[in-house]
Design a protein around this nucleic acid. Structure first.
Ligand code: FES
Ligand code: FES
Lengths: 185, 185
DNA sequence: CATAACACGGATAATATCACTCCGCGTTTG
DNA sequence: CAAACGCGGAGTGATATTATCCGTGTTATG
């Protein structure tokens, strides 16, 4: 867990829209266009979530992704680990064994167990991971719905629903897909 | 605080030897050779600790560094911030404002305050920082002295004392500087 | 059956950071 | 004055991040 990259931001925000999605599954392209991020990059992120068992993929046309578990069983730590691959916060180089006060090879007491400096870093990483594990996708959707006005959920479903209809070939109703007057050139 | 780099490991281990150092000040070169790390790289780290007020520098020959405060008043968080420069754990790109359900510019409720995803990351970073702030340099020296045999402290002082004598020009007694039979070619 | 829209993986490139080296300058001791 | 310091800037190779493009396989639709 070296650093929380933008891939994590893309992933969590994408998963947010998969919760309560009526028009499932949603393609990575749909989610990218909806959020205004790079489609090709988001397409590289979802296979990681799928291998971690967080989302379920369906192939072929009309395929896409849906949540593999209930949103209360998906937490931030699982998402971060799925994407960043369990990299440690601190990468100990075992300085302690190269002390010149030792001869060629250090005594056993010096290299046994975890270095006291490293132990503090491990505690810090554990505190961070526990905080991430304590935040579920369900908590996130509740926080968002407290913030957004009630009609926003309908706008989202209208936009995504229009997307699904359009790629189904029925590309007749191409205007007025959102109550905010969005059009795509 | 993007990632705890090896510079942090070098810094904390170096500061460890500055606690209870009888032959003060110690040069960055002394500390690097003693620990078996790159002298030129460690020399780039100490000015950061000096600007943070953790360490006090003396210039000229026989100069070097000593702790600027008592070791119980120096914690891991101060050292990490001094070296990594307060970089955040998570760099929010404000994805939420680019949602296609909004028109050209997003409504105020969507961009006001901190994003709910970002808020979780800030809590995780806070938990990590509090753990780091709870570990002082004094705690570290106590943990090390519990681990090392009592004669080790004498070995360290002998090696560093010999180093100070040698660069003082009195380079006659160059052998048998450690009870482990260390010699430097 | 042909096509188009998917997922998936590999290759590539631009940018940034990291670990590290080298140099020159000013300061201080002997 | 010379040697040993601290200090700052420039530069280098390795790696990671962000992003794009392409090819392969799968599946629904016409
Ligand atoms: S040897 Fe790596 S942190 Fe001490
Ligand atoms: S917009 Fe950056 S974390 Fe939500």
């Amino acid at each position: 867990m070296a650093h929380l990259t933008v891939s994590v931001e893309y992933a969590i925000h994408s998963l947010l829209w998969l919760v309560d999605a009526e028009t499932a599954p949603l393609s990575s392209r749909d989610l990218a266009d909806f959020q205004g991020v790079s489609p090709s990059y988001l397409a590289k992120i979802f296979p990681k979530l799928e291998k971690a068992g967080i989302v379920k993929a369906s192939e072929g046309v009309r395929g896409g992704y849906e949540l593999a578990r209930a949103p209360e069983d998906i937490n931030f730590l699982q998402i971060v680990d799925a994407i960043e691959g369990r990299k440690p916060l601190f990468d100990c180089q075992e300085i302690r064994g190269r002390c010149a006060a030792f001869g060629e090879l250090p005594p056993t007491w010096a290299t046994r167990g975890v270095c006291s400096v490293h132990a503090v870093m491990l505690r810090a990483e554990k505190a961070m991971r526990e905080t991430l594990a304590g935040a579920s996708l369900r908590d996130l959707t509740q926080a968002v719905s407290r913030k957004a006005p009630p009609e926003f959920a309908n706008d989202v479903k209208a936009w995504l629903g229009e997307r699904v209809l359009r790629r189904a070939g029925k590309s007749s109703s191409s205007a007025r897909l959102s109550s905010h007057g969005e059009d795509l050139s």
